[in-house]
Write a protein that binds this DNA or RNA. Structure first.
Length: 446
RNA sequence: GCGAAUGUAGCUCAUCUGGUUAGAGCGCCGGUUUGUGGUACCGGAGGUAGCGGGUUCAAUCCCCGUCAUUCGCCCCA
């Protein structure tokens, strides 16, 4: 009988305090920026009835990539693989009484049964930010700008990534009106576009011919060539350039420009997998050579709320993931050194000072300071080492002399500097530091 | 679901084509230093080589299975 494995379940991660610090940092920045844009936080259940996903998420996701089971009451349930259907359900349930446009965000975990790879796990965490009840390019532009500002808040420069843009209505116009594909051919061509970068030009051509069929192949390929040669939206063939959907996309680009989003570009091959997208789709794409891939994306999904029997409501949103964000920050060297939430480590010196040190610790806690007291009686260098190892920003030395004089030496573990403070100045100093680094935005009505 | 690579100490890796008690650096613990860490010196702990089976006088090394990780395909909220 072998002993129990310490490995976490396949595709999941353990978060020790050092990992949790990174996670909390990323969550903190996400929440802070989302709140800056007026988004409010919500939550949804971990489990949803199967039907919530079958309608629009795409067969692959529901059929093969979900964790699903039958509960004790014979209900088919699914561990949420994404948030969009859940929030659409929630909005549909309060369709009449919500205030629109509704700006909503959540930070939650999801599960998806698939092959784990770098930056892709079976349990993963995402920010979801969505606007409901706002049609048109203003809302699209805002969501994309929110993503841009998120990246900026992490210290990302615009040349570290690009924002690829396309539109499902433009795709439809390309497929049906321009290329003349029927409802069976069109989805095949969409899939082919999606993997264009992964296959050779010859393969692309051969597979395209297969889709067009012998009769339409020659004309089809000529038109296809004109599409693919288009660098920007202006380069599109005349036949679809004056399509309203293309005009809308053009105005989205100019909206983004006025908002300072300088790294957005039209990408005719950008498709995205979900069936529920109805308008603009976009993807934030890392340009770092070691991590050249899509980080996150989103788009417009105007049909989802209506599926729940409510009056249809327009919606646009996006969802950055934690692991991808971590990989991005680390490959661009943007992950800061993170401190413990414990602000002060009280090092106790001398034999009979513990009662006094303990009392002082209590007073600091009453002032709202996060304090850990070392009551082990170990040598001072061990106490300091422990504080450093735990990434605690300050060590406070408490010995007989300090208790008598009521002046305490506060050591900054990062810089090594040390300074003596009275109790009041001590508290002020620690709170200054907290104000500087905190991402907390809690508030009260007073 | 398919194809491939990898798995030796906490981490990064050695162990030359199978051969006595599997090594190093870093890290960890203790000491030099009974009121100040991250440098230096000294000492120490830690491995049934992912797991299971097979071949062999003998397996970390070869074979099979299994689990995990990574890469690619598929797919990507």
């Amino acid at each position: 009988m072998s002993s129990l494995s310490t490995n976490p379940y396949k595709g999941t991660r353990d978060y020790y305090p050092a990992d949790k610090r990174k996670q909390n940092y990323i969550f903190g920045v996400w929440a802070k920026v989302a709140r800056r844009f007026g988004y409010e936080e919500y939550g949804a259940p971990l489990l949803e009835p199967l039907e919530v996903y079958t309608a629009k998420s795409g067969q692959e996701l529901v059929g093969e990539q979900t964790y699903r089971f039958v509960d004790r009451g014979d209900r088919e349930v699914v561990i949420r693989p994404e948030m969009t259907p859940s929030i659409s359900r929630m909005v549909a349930a309060r369709r009449q009484e919500m205030a629109y446009p509704a700006r909503l965000f959540s930070i939650a975990n999801y599960m998806r049964y698939e092959r784990p790879q770098r930056g892709r796990e079976r349990e993963f965490w995402q920010l979801n930010a969505d606007i409901f009840g706002a049609e048109g390019v203003q809302a699209d532009a805002e969501i994309i700008t929110l993503g841009f500002e998120l990246m900026k808040a992490f210290g990302a420069k615009p040349d570290m990534y690009v924002i690829k843009l396309n539109s499902r209505t433009v795709i439809d116009a390309m497929m049906h009106d321009y290329l003349g594909l029927d409802p069976i051919q069109a989805p095949l061509m969409v899939k082919l576009f999606d993997r264009k970068d992964k296959i050779t030009n010859e393969n692309f051509r051969d597979q395209a011919i297969e889709i067009f069929g012998v009769d339409g192949a020659k004309e089809g390929l000529a038109k296809l060539a004109q599409l693919l040669v288009a660098k920007g939206i202006e380069g599109l063939p005349k036949e679809i350039a004056d399509n309203p959907a293309v005009e809308e996309l053009a105005s989205l680009f100019s909206e983004l420009k006025t908002r300072g989003v300088v790294n957005a570009q039209f990408d005719i091959t950008l498709m995205r997998g979900f069936d529920y997208y109805t308008g603009v789709v976009f993807e934030f794409f890392d340009t770092h050579p070691d991590n050249n891939r899509a980080m996150f994306g989103g788009g417009r999904y105007d049909g989802l709320v209506g599926l729940f029997g409510a009056e249809p409501l327009s919606a646009v949103g996006m969802a950055p993931g934690l692991s991808m964000m971590e990989v991005f920050l680390e490959s661009h060297d943007l992950m800061p050194e993170l401190a413990s939430t414990t602000e002060v480590y009280v090092a106790v010196l001398g034999d009979n000072t513990l009662p006094g040190a303990s009392k002082l610790t209590g007073r600091l806690r009453e002032e709202g300071v996060n304090v850990e007291l070392d009551f082990t009686g170990r040598k001072i260098d061990k106490q300091i080492k422990t504080a450093v190892k735990k990434h605690i920003p300050y060590v406070l030395f408490v010995g007989e002399a300090e208790l008598k004089s009521e002046k305490y030496n506060l050591k900054d573990t990062h810089t090594g500097e040390e300074e003596a403070f009275s109790f009041e100045r001590l508290v002020a100093r620690i709170k200054d530091r907290r104000r500087k680094y905190s991402t907390d935005d809690d508030a009260l009505f007073e």
